[in-house]
């Protein structure tokens, strides 16, 4: 049975009527109209669907919409804008990271949460924090350059 939920996404409340078991990903993509979290696996194995829930990166493909409560959801679109970019977004453009770009969401959202906690991380720490995320195109070298660059920008 569908239920009504109020989702706080990028600072705005959205009313969503859905099966409580439906993963948050589909609510964000199809009900809220945010395309940036992507479906990559639906199995918490790739990161393409990553969003922040109260500052923590979560995989929205396995998070039931009913489990979100009044937690604050931030998506890549809410992380920064061309006018006020997040350092990772700036670094991604500077480093020209993506090939297809389908994986961007997972890497930036995961790295953003990590860099908020960890100042001046080592290369090994960055790699560990991003381990498990997938990029099938193999842009790992550029991803690492961009995260390092953003880490520097964030001091």
């Amino acid at each position: 049975m569908n239920q009504r939920f109020s989702l706080n996404v990028n600072g705005t409340a959205h009313a969503v009527e859905a099966d409580p078991d439906m993963p948050l990903l589909y609510a964000l993509r199809n009900d809220v109209g945010l395309n940036n979290p992507h479906f990559g696996c639906g199995l918490a194995q790739c990161g393409a669907c990553t969003v922040h829930l109260d500052g923590q990166p979560i995989r929205s493909c396995i998070t039931p919409v009913s489990a979100v409560g009044d937690g604050k959801i931030v998506t890549l679109a809410g992380l920064g804008t061309p006018e006020k970019p997040h350092p990772l977004q700036t670094a991604y453009v500077e480093e020209q990271v993506p090939q297809c770009g389908y994986c961007i969401n997972g890497w930036i959202m995961t790295a953003a949460a990590f860099l908020k906690e960890k100042k001046k991380p080592t290369e090994a720490e960055i790699k560990d924090a991003l381990s498990g995320l997938k990029c099938r195109c193999g842009t790992h070298m550029a991803i690492l350059r961009a995260v390092k660059r953003a880490a520097e920008m964030m001091g």
Partner: peptide, 19 residues
């Protein structure tokens, strides 16, 4: 010369075919 499609991708202004 740089790609002009990276910024729209990181700022979620460009659709994939999935979108």
């Amino acid at each position: 010369i740089k790609r002009a499609d990276v910024a729209p991708k990181v700022f979620c202004q460009e659709d994939f075919c999935t979108d």
